[in-house]
């Protein structure tokens, strides 16, 4: 099977590829957003905890 017939998909490539592409795009987007949120909140939590410790150490 050569590359062009694979892309063409029997003339329906214009419908098949966008549906796979859109699915990938949306799923990757939500995964990326969720992980970014986790990372951001984790970093913020570390920062606050550190600040907390410093405050408690004060006489």
């Amino acid at each position: 099977m050569d590359f062009n017939t694979f892309i063409d998909m029997g003339g329906y490539g214009a419908f098949i590829w966008p549906s796979y592409g859109l699915s990938a795009l949306v799923l990757v987007a939500i995964l990326w957003q969720s992980r970014a949120r986790l990372k951001r909140s984790g970093a913020e939590l570390e920062r606050l905890r550190h600040k907390d410790d410093v405050q408690e150490d004060r006489p």
Binding site: R35, R37, L38, G42, L45, L48, D52
Partner: peptide, 20 residues
């Protein structure tokens, strides 16, 4: 799972901020 962990982090951040 990722989102739940982020939610728990947010809740802790809020609690810490309140305390501070």
């Amino acid at each position: 799972f990722v989102r739940v962990r982020a939610e728990f982090n947010d809740a802790r951040i809020q609690a810490l901020r309140l305390r501070q």
